[in-house]
Amino acid sequence: MRQTRSKNIGITIYILLLLTPVYWLLNMSFKTSREILGGLTLWPQNFTFDNYVVIFTDPSWYNGYLNSMAYVSINVVITLLVALPAAYAFSRYKFLGDKHLFFWLLSNRMAPPAVFLLPFFQLYSSIGLFDTHIAVALAHCLFNVPLAVWILEGFMKGVPREYDEMAYIDGYSFPRFFIKVFLPMIRSGIGVTAFFAFMFSWVELLLARTLTAVDAQPIGAIMTRTIGASGIDWGVLAAAGVLTIIPGLLVIWFVRNHVAKGFALGRV
């Protein structure tokens, strides 16, 4: 019993330390800029929503969120569509060059995005996709698709092949089996994969910033741009930061029961 208590105290302290910087951001987002620069206060003395109002009323701010959401969603859809059949192939069949292909895919997860910066910029400019959501979504496939194949393959391995054979005996065609029988069985795996694809696309900025200028600019780029202009409005910056955390929290809430399994099986 004593052991459990000391463990609980330990984990509570860790979580408190972990949340302090986030609390500080939240705290600052509710302060007026006079209060921020006037001195250190542990909680807002003049509680205000002004910073949030600035973001929700200025299109150049809230468009950033919409842009980020747009390319992240496109990316998750593309990633799942191509990764599902591939993961099935890797989990069920031996084929020419399968191991090499798998490692090659993974090596793209390892490639520093900075390496691909310039060629991506030129590639997408030359085919007229520069500054579109689809360009960022495709670029993010570079690291998300290998990851998705890896996670999904782990989940699919857990489904015995007898199911496949039974379905064929019952007269199911492959596409019908795949969609009607197989996919529902790995629902949680798909959820977890979507979560990781969402997460890695949402947090990435280097590629997203390089491939966009105005129309598809992500919120992160808008935030860094604000730092450059006439001093820093810390309050608005903090509010913008707080708003970028919320989508992630919503998504992880939906997959909370499967995430631990996803880490174990899929070996992210």
Partner: peptide, 22 residues
């Protein structure tokens, strides 16, 4: 699990911003 995962869900530039302020 969710509380510990929070830092992972924050865009990397915001992580920089948080610490820049903090």
């Amino acid at each position: 699990l969710i509380l510990i995962a929070i830092p992972l869900l924050i865009p990397w530039n915001v992580v920089g911003t948080i610490w820049q302020i903090f």
